[in-house]
Simulated scan of single mutants.
Amino acid sequence: MKAIQLVRPTVVELRDLPQPKPAAGEVLLKVTAAGLCHTDISIQHEETSLFPAGLVLGHEIAGIVDSVGEGVTGWAPGDAAIVHPCWSCGACPECVAGRQNACRRTTGRLASPPTPGVSVNGGMAEYVAVPARTLIAADGLDPAVAAVLPDAALVPYHSIHATRDLLVPGSTLVIIGLGGLGNLGVQIARALTAARIVAIDGKPAALQAVEGSVDLALPADAADLEQRILDFTGGQGAQVVLDFVGIDATLRLAAGVVARYGAIRVPGLGEGTLPFEARHAAQYLPWGASITRPYSGTYQDLVELVALARQQRIKPIVRRYPFEDAMQAFEDLAAGKIVGRAVLQM
């Protein structure tokens, strides 16, 4: 089969690989679409052996069941499905409570559960074998739309759903970064909440893409950015700030505009830092504000996202590439030419 493989650090190529066979408890998917995101670009450019050589990339996967392994029930050839990206144990206290993204048995305290395309073979291939318990039905969905739900939509959905008690009428949500995740974050917030939305990005095309869906759109390089957000909220700040970038500047902006007892959630992996001061006149965070590093989302989150997509309450912006043009898609994404999400179609 054809697959996009990390041959060795910094070398990602389209290669011929053996087709996998489903083990007990697994399903073999014939991949119909695979999303491409900045995590894949990071893997491509990582110079160390952080990611295993020989890894097949692709953590956003949609496909059709080709065959099932021993002991699998509930799935049959021809079924359309997407793959939840947290390959958890399904039995630990976190999994039983529905927090598969915090599985205790599969990894240690500072690591995430096995993830296709990151730590185990993923879906940028003609076929992929996955645990049957990670599948969610996706019949009736455009495969390119279905493929981006397990990450580009799941990550913002998880954070927005977790802060819905703060996003009441009259509240404000600030979204920093309108790439594949941030754009869908705007759509999800519109579908789930009555909050006013402030959107920030450095690219005019990204701001234009959310025009009409937000209450205030601001360029990231605006000199008075923080003050304009505070003025918009009457000086009180935003109840929730989602930072899909995660660099020093965006973290400081988030801390500078969050309301007392508001929430900052940082899915962005930009390696920034935000000082924490436990004193009365703290420079950064106001009283009661919290900051969280959320990871992915739960199985239930993804089930609910599929329902939103079926109802067309969210409409991911996708740029489609034939699978044989995968390396061009990598180049375009790295060069900042993609609005929404790049998707490889088989």
Rank of each mutant, 00 (worst) to 15 (best):
K2T: 07
K2E: 15
A3V: 11
A3G: 14
V11K: 02
V11M: 04
V12K: 03
E13S: 09
L14G: 12
R15Y: 10
P20G: 12
K21M: 13
L36E: 06
T39F: 09
S42D: 12
I43F: 07
F51M: 12
P52H: 00
V56Y: 00
A62R: 06
D66F: 09
V68E: 01
V68Y: 01
A76W: 06
G78R: 02
D79H: 14
V83I: 09
V83A: 05
H84K: 02
C86V: 01
G90M: 03
C95Q: 02
C95E: 07
C95H: 03
C95I: 01
R99E: 15
N101C: 12
C103Q: 14
R104I: 08
R104H: 09
R104M: 13
T106V: 10
T107Y: 03
R109W: 06
L110S: 15
L110G: 05
P114W: 02
V120S: 06
A125Q: 07
V130I: 15
P131W: 03
T134I: 09
L135C: 07
L135H: 06
L135V: 06
L141T: 03
A144G: 11
A146M: 15
A147N: 02
L149F: 14
P156N: 06
Y157P: 10
I160F: 00
T163C: 05
T163K: 01
L166C: 09
L167P: 06
G177E: 11
G182A: 12
V186R: 01
Q187H: 12
I188N: 07
R190A: 13
R190K: 15
R190P: 12
R190S: 14
A194Q: 08
A206T: 10
L207Y: 08
S213G: 08
D215K: 09
P219C: 02
A222V: 00
A222C: 03
D231A: 01
G234M: 00
Q236A: 02
V241G: 00
F244S: 00
D248C: 10
R252V: 07
L253C: 10
V257N: 02
V258G: 01
R260K: 09
Y261V: 07
E277G: 08
G288A: 02
G288R: 03
A289Q: 03
I291K: 00
Q300M: 07
L302T: 10
L302D: 10
A307W: 03
Q312T: 13
R320T: 13
R320W: 02
A326V: 10
E331D: 14
G336M: 07
G336H: 02
V339T: 11
G340E: 09
L344F: 04
